[in-house]
Amino acid sequence: MTITTIQNASQDLGPLPIAQDRPKILLVDDRWENLLATEKVLKPLHAQIFKAASGNEALSLVLRHDFAIVLLDVQMPEMDGFETAVLMQEHESMAGVPIIFVTAISKEDRYASKAAEIGAVDYIFKPINPDILKSKVKVYLDLYVQREQIMHLNAILSQSNEELERFAYICSHDMQEPVRMMNAFASLLADSSEQALDEGGRRYLNFILDNARRMQKMIGDILTFSRVGREDILLETVDCQAVLHETLSEFEDVIQQSQALVTYGELPSLETSSTLIRVLFQNLIGNALKFQNGNRPPEIAVTATRQDQVWRFTVADNGIGIDEAFRSRIFTIFQRLHRKEDYPGTGIGLSTCRKFIQLCGGDIDFVSAPGQGCTFYFTLPCKEARTHEAV
């Protein structure tokens, strides 16, 4: 069986880049007096201005600097502006950098069309109105600065999230043992000394046991959530129907006690994460069994259909449903719609599902209404391994 991995993109982020104080402008013209005149016009924009008197010189500067905008003369010896622009765009740092062609003689429509085909954002003629030129360039400089700021803030946010998840992982990992010991000793006390306690003592002991178990469940869920994205995701051949059977066997007692009816169609085998499929089925089927609508036995239907390049799985139930007003809270960690006394849980399961499935190239959402059940659906890329007959 072939297993591949998805590397965590947030690992080894390293120090964040320091944003440039001033954006860079590249002026390209074979006449030095034109370069000096344009530089004088653009100097009030407080940008770093680089000048090149030929296409080759401009290409050399592109290799060493990241530019916010390029003003490029069309008519130049050896290599004209069009050729220079095409070669510039082959360099990774020039992807998306706006190029403005400037010309004194190439005023025919075919030249403007050629500039547009190359990807130029403007094609202007000399003599240039200084105010118009400065205004045009300022717009692109402002866009560049805003984009750089957003990228810088995203990098900071990514690093902050990584540090927060690392902290959650360390804390929850270190909390496992003392909570396990608390649960174990409370259980021993209940077995050996419960009869010696009065009614109040037994009630307090049950409080300790219930909260210790709930804390263990929460710590386990936090560990699962913090691991998603921190560790490599193993991609392997996953028989989704077999995983569903295993999940249903885990809920066998609950299904029998609630007299639940669970139906399912043929599910595919995919190249994906077996842990992901198991987490999805455990959470969605577990919720469907938990959020029952009165005394009506739960009805759960699991299906999978292929739609273009994805498989779309659905888990539908006849439970209490979800109000549309709470949509934004459903996949947010620690957000609960009900009191823990009414419906136990940690508020982490669905947020883990979304985080995990998005790393695997899919997504998850739902349709529902109060009292009318809920249908969760998730998608996964169509990396089929094999198909089989329904059991």
Score class of each variant (00 low, 15 high):
residue 142 D to R: 03
residue 142 D to S: 03
residue 143 L to I: 06
residue 144 Y to F: 15
residue 146 Q to I: 05
residue 148 E to C: 04
residue 149 Q to G: 01
residue 150 I to N: 04
residue 150 I to M: 11
residue 153 L to E: 09
residue 154 N to A: 09
residue 156 I to S: 03
residue 156 I to Y: 05
residue 157 L to S: 08
residue 157 L to G: 03
residue 158 S to L: 08
residue 158 S to N: 08
residue 158 S to D: 10
residue 158 S to M: 09
residue 158 S to W: 02
residue 159 Q to Y: 03
residue 160 S to W: 04
residue 161 N to M: 11
residue 162 E to M: 04
residue 162 E to W: 05
residue 162 E to H: 14
residue 163 E to S: 05
residue 163 E to D: 06
residue 163 E to C: 01
residue 163 E to N: 11
residue 163 E to M: 03
residue 165 E to Q: 05
residue 167 F to Y: 03
residue 167 F to K: 01
residue 168 A to T: 00
residue 169 Y to N: 05
residue 169 Y to D: 02
residue 170 I to F: 03
residue 171 C to P: 00
residue 172 S to F: 00
residue 172 S to N: 04
residue 172 S to W: 01
residue 172 S to M: 00
residue 172 S to G: 03
residue 173 H to I: 01
residue 177 E to Y: 10
residue 177 E to S: 12
residue 177 E to C: 07
residue 178 P to L: 00
residue 178 P to A: 05
residue 178 P to F: 00
residue 181 M to G: 06
residue 181 M to I: 14
residue 182 M to Y: 09
residue 183 N to T: 07
residue 183 N to K: 11
residue 184 A to Y: 10
residue 184 A to I: 08
residue 185 F to I: 15
residue 185 F to R: 13
residue 187 S to D: 07
residue 189 L to T: 12
residue 189 L to V: 10
residue 189 L to N: 06
residue 190 A to D: 13
residue 192 S to A: 08
residue 192 S to K: 14
residue 193 S to G: 06
residue 193 S to M: 13
residue 193 S to W: 12
residue 194 E to A: 13
residue 195 Q to I: 07
residue 196 A to Q: 14
residue 197 L to K: 05
residue 197 L to Y: 12
residue 199 E to C: 08
residue 200 G to K: 13
residue 200 G to L: 12
residue 200 G to C: 14
residue 202 R to N: 13
residue 202 R to E: 13
residue 204 Y to S: 15
residue 204 Y to A: 11
residue 205 L to S: 08
residue 206 N to F: 14
residue 207 F to I: 15
residue 208 I to M: 14
residue 211 N to C: 07
residue 212 A to V: 07
residue 212 A to Q: 13
residue 213 R to S: 12
residue 215 M to L: 15
residue 216 Q to A: 08
residue 216 Q to I: 12
residue 216 Q to W: 02
residue 217 K to P: 11
residue 218 M to N: 11
residue 219 I to Q: 04
residue 221 D to L: 05
residue 221 D to F: 02
residue 222 I to Y: 01
residue 222 I to Q: 03
residue 222 I to C: 02
residue 222 I to E: 00
residue 223 L to M: 06
residue 223 L to Q: 01
residue 224 T to G: 09
residue 226 S to A: 09
residue 226 S to G: 02
residue 227 R to H: 09
residue 227 R to V: 01
residue 227 R to S: 08
residue 228 V to D: 01
residue 228 V to S: 02
residue 228 V to G: 01
residue 230 R to S: 11
residue 230 R to T: 01
residue 230 R to K: 14
residue 232 D to G: 01
residue 232 D to T: 10
residue 232 D to K: 15
residue 235 L to P: 02
residue 237 T to R: 14
residue 237 T to K: 15
residue 239 D to M: 11
residue 240 C to E: 07
residue 240 C to M: 12
residue 241 Q to H: 10
residue 242 A to K: 10
residue 243 V to A: 10
residue 243 V to H: 05
residue 243 V to C: 07
residue 244 L to R: 07
residue 244 L to Q: 14
residue 245 H to Q: 13
residue 246 E to G: 08
residue 246 E to K: 15
residue 246 E to W: 07
residue 249 S to I: 04
residue 249 S to P: 04
residue 249 S to E: 15
